[in-house]
Each structure stands twice: as C-alpha cells, then as structure tokens.
Amino acid sequence: MDFLEPTSTRIVDKLLFITLGILVFLIIMQFLSCQTDPTATDVAWEKFENKKYSEAYTDFIAIQDDPKGLVGLGWTLLRLDSLTRAEDVFTRAAGDSIVDGYAGWSAVAWRNSHFTVAIRASDFVQRMEPGYLFAHDQSVDISDIKLHKAYSLYHLQNYQSCNGVMQELDPSWVASNDATTLLAKLESLYNTYQ
C-alpha cells in the first residue's frame, strides 16, 4: 500500500521524534529548574521566616559574600541576640544600600548605644522607602524604624527632633521638653500602632 512508508523510515522518524521529545523535555526541565529552584538566599530567608535562626545562620554564613546574604546574616544575628556581631555585619553591608540592612541596623545600633548611627540608619530607610515593610517579618515596618530614631534622639537629649518624630507617629502628641513626660509617651507610642 503506497500510503505506508517503509518500516525503516518510520523507525527513524520515531527515533527522531523521541529524541526531539527528550530534548524538548530536558530544555523545559532546565528552564523550569531555573525558574523554581530557590536560590540559596531564598532558602536561608525561608528558614529565617520560619524562625529557624540557627539554620538560617549557617546558610547565611555560607553566602555572606552576596550583599543580600550579608543582610540576612545581620538580621539572623539580631534575632539570635548577638547584637555586636549583628551591627558589625550591618556596617559591612552598608555600602550595598539595601534598605533591609539599614532597618536592622537602626535597631541594633540603638540597643548598642550607637545613637547617631541608629538615627542615620533610620533616616536612610525613611528616605529610600517611606512606607517600609520588612518582607521577611511583616510585623516590622516604618513605625518601628522611626521609633528607634525617636529613642535615640531621646537618649541624645535632642528633645526637639525627638518630639518631631513622635508627632510623625502620633500627630496628636503635644511637644514636651520634660524627660519624664517624653519617656512615658515613648513607652506608650509602641502601643499606638499595634
């Protein structure tokens, strides 16, 4: 029957088809693996988000040459209460201008009594992302960063600027230069934007 091709030709075609299929499959797999295989940074951040800080620490240590990995290391050290090391890491990461790094830095610098550093870090976050929200812990936002600034200004007794930040957080706040009044308000400000 003329509509039937010779058997050898059909086998060759079949092989060709299978080979092409395998090739296409491999290409697709390769493409998909590029798309879905999370990077080491993503894996480490996922551990951070799941509060597996020790595991995240190991991962971030391995990728600290990457700027995002370095910021992740800073945040992980912060959560592990290793605040001096965290600040060192955030200082190293500062050149990369990653906002998350400055956000964490504003906290540890305040807690480590480096108040001018905390203020600068807070200012950077506010300038770069006025509506900042930390993607890996969404309980942290711009209000917290401003609060670190207000705490630091209070500590430096720059009450005028401190009042200014407090008014950003609570527009109804009436400025005061009394240390006790300011402290009581700073204490309660944390509750304002829960």
Partner: peptide, 14 residues
C-alpha cells in the same frame, strides 16, 4: 524617680 521601659518589635527579647 520614675521608671520607663523602651522596647522594639525588631528586638523581641531586648
């Protein structure tokens, strides 16, 4: 004397 406590969401144990 009066006592105050300052705290941060970022530093949950401090």
């Amino acid at each position: 004397l009066s006592i105050g406590i300052l705290r941060s969401t970022v530093l949950k144990n401090q």
